[in-house]
Computed example of a mutant assay.
Amino acid sequence: MALCFLHGCQPSVIHRDLKPGNLLLTAEGHLKVSDFGLSKIFDANSSDGTYRMTGVTGTLRYMAPEVMRSEAYTEKVDVYSYAFVLWFMCTGERPLMGKVQQDFLDAATRHFDLRPDLEEISYKPLAALMASAWHGIADQRPTAAELVARLRAMQLPNNPKEKACKKRSGAKSCSIS
């Protein structure tokens, strides 16, 4: 996974704007991360392991709450965004479509968890992975390497017709195989 590479660099790189629009699919079916315009080198040598960067940087719909609150943050902001991208990939819909900018900002400042509905995700191991990755407390989120390990360990259903998400009207089919 690209986040493992970025976060594993010395020093690590935080993308800060991970969203479906910044993911490209090659003709061979390989996913590529693009648009590194907001990316930053993460200074892990700072006194408390965090690095103060510009707040409210990226796309609100996929932005971690600590970024919205202009708090110090780590590469876990990309893990948070990844969970929203994964939800989008499973459902075919942008997360939290009915929400406006103020809803996202209010939720962040009040420490209220504003997340998409995991009931849409039929494959429960994937739903659990998303829930842990978009946890409101950054330290509780897995690392990118842990995400990859959990994805690799998932047992795919034997039935190739089983879907990762519930079919919604107007949503594209989303097979997990």
Rank of each mutant, 00 (worst) to 15 (best):
K40T: 07
G170L: 01
D35F: 01
G29Q: 07
Y73W: 14
V77H: 03
G21K: 11
L18F: 12
T74R: 12
K124F: 10
H30L: 14
E71W: 01
D113H: 10
S46M: 13
Y123I: 03
K163F: 06
T91H: 07
Q155Y: 09
E75F: 07
D17F: 00
K166A: 10
D17R: 04
R115G: 00
L156G: 02
S70T: 07
A171E: 12
P125H: 07
E120C: 12
R110W: 05
E93L: 13
S47I: 08
T74D: 06
C90V: 03
D35V: 02
A144K: 06
G21P: 08
C165N: 13
S173H: 11
T143N: 10
E71P: 05
P160S: 06
A72T: 08
W134R: 02
A128Q: 06
V67S: 00
G92W: 03
P11C: 10
R61S: 02
A27I: 03
H7F: 12
L24E: 03
S122K: 05
A145L: 13
S132W: 10
T59H: 01
R115C: 08
M154W: 11
A144F: 10
A83Q: 09
W87H: 02
A128F: 03
A144D: 08
K163G: 02
R141G: 01
L86N: 01
H111L: 09
G58K: 09
Y51I: 03
A2T: 07
M1E: 12
G49T: 06
A131L: 02
D139R: 13
R69F: 11
S47D: 14
L126G: 02
V33Q: 04
K40R: 15
K172E: 14
L105Q: 00
S173C: 13
L31V: 14
A107S: 06
E146A: 15
T109L: 15
G55V: 12
M89S: 12
D48G: 11
A72E: 12
L86T: 11
E119R: 07
E71G: 02
E162N: 11
P95V: 00
I121L: 00
A107C: 05
A44H: 14
L156E: 08
A145T: 14
F84E: 03
A72W: 07
I14D: 11
D103Y: 06
F104L: 09
P116L: 05
L25D: 05
Y73R: 07
A107D: 01
S34V: 03
G21E: 14
L3D: 07
P116T: 04
T50H: 13
G49P: 09
E162Q: 13
K161S: 14
L3S: 08
A2W: 15
L24I: 12
V56C: 06
Q140T: 10
A133P: 01
A83N: 02
I176E: 04
N158H: 10
V79Q: 08
T54Y: 03
I14H: 10
D78Y: 02
P95L: 02
P142A: 00
Y73V: 09
L23K: 11
T74I: 06
S47H: 06
C4E: 15
L126D: 01
A133R: 03
P125S: 06
F88H: 10
Y51K: 04
R168C: 07
P11M: 13
E93H: 10
F5H: 14
Y62V: 05
A64Q: 00
E75Y: 05
M130R: 04
D17M: 00
C174I: 00
G55T: 05
H15D: 08
G170D: 04
R16C: 08
K124Q: 15
P157R: 00
